[in-house]
């Protein structure tokens, strides 16, 4: 049979032998398996040390660092706050949170668009968080790939700000679906925008199950509520110590 079209004619002699058919090997292996294993190790290590942890995700400029600086004084009474700041370049954010009262280290990812579990493991080695502390990991401003990389934090908070529009959860469903808490930031700007808060909340519910808290780092709206939520994550650190 002719190997080219299956027409049933005898193959002309002298034609090259068709390459031996390959062997198919079933793999079913997670592409991010190595990152996931490292993240699981970070999670285990934090839980064993009695350390609470949260991963902050959001677009560039959503207001993650400004909010964190407001939260730090509210959280400090419950135990030390340690911050891992991820940015492609600069250490400005680490300096800002240090000024607000946290211990912080900056991780620069260079051309990388996200933190990964190995970078966080390295940061934890350097921070060596004491029992009862809270580790906050501020990811590189980006709603796309950080959502794919588990870092090993106990909870994930996604920050979206009002100027970004109501459709963010639908445009970046992976990030919002993976969130344990969604913060709608910069609500002080609402009078100047045409932003439909109810529609934003509907869109969050359309892709996931995270609760939404409205916050403003400028006028303090929601800051105490977020601090309380983070201290619930903190409740786990007390349990872990017991």
């Amino acid at each position: 049979m002719c190997g080219t079209c299956g027409c049933g004619e005898a193959e002309p002699s002298g034609a090259p032998e068709p390459e031996a058919p390959g062997r198919t090997v079933r793999l079913e292996e997670a592409i991010l398996g190595r990152n996931d294993a490292l993240a699981a190790e970070n999670r285990r290590r934090l839980a064993e040390a009695g350390v609470a942890s949260v991963d902050l995700l959001g677009s560039p400029g959503a207001g993650k660092t400004t909010l964190l600086c407001r939260l730090i004084p509210e959280l400090a009474a419950a135990g030390p706050i340690l911050v891992v700041e991820g940015d492609q370049a600069t250490d400005g954010d680490a300096r800002r949170v240090r000024k607000a009262g946290a211990r912080a280290i900056q991780v620069n990812t260079g051309s990388g668009c996200h933190l990964d579990a190995a970078m966080v493991a390295g940061a934890l080695d350097r921070l060596d968080p004491p029992p009862g502390s809270l580790v906050v990991i501020e990811n590189v401003g980006n709603l796309i790939c950080p959502a794919m990389f588990d870092l090993g934090a106990a909870a994930r908070v996604v920050v979206a700000s009002t100027p970004e529009g109501e459709e963010k959860p639908l445009k970046y469903p992976h990030a919002f679906r993976s969130a344990d808490l969604v913060l709608l930031a910069k609500v002080d700007l609402l009078p100047h925008l045409r932003f439909d808060v109810a529609r934003f909340e509907e869109n969050v519910r359309a892709v996931g199950s995270a609760e939404v808290i409205r916050v403003s780092a400028l006028d303090g709206t929601g800051v105490t509520e977020v601090a309380r939520w983070l201290l619930t994550v903190g409740g786990e650190r007390v349990d872990a110590r017991a």
């Binding site: 062997r23 198919t24 090997v25 079933r26 793999l27 592409i31 991010l32 794919m148």
Partner: peptide
């Protein structure tokens, strides 16, 4: 995100 199979 999964590597399903390969041919060798």
């Amino acid at each position: 995100l999964v590597v399903e199979e390969m041919e060798v």
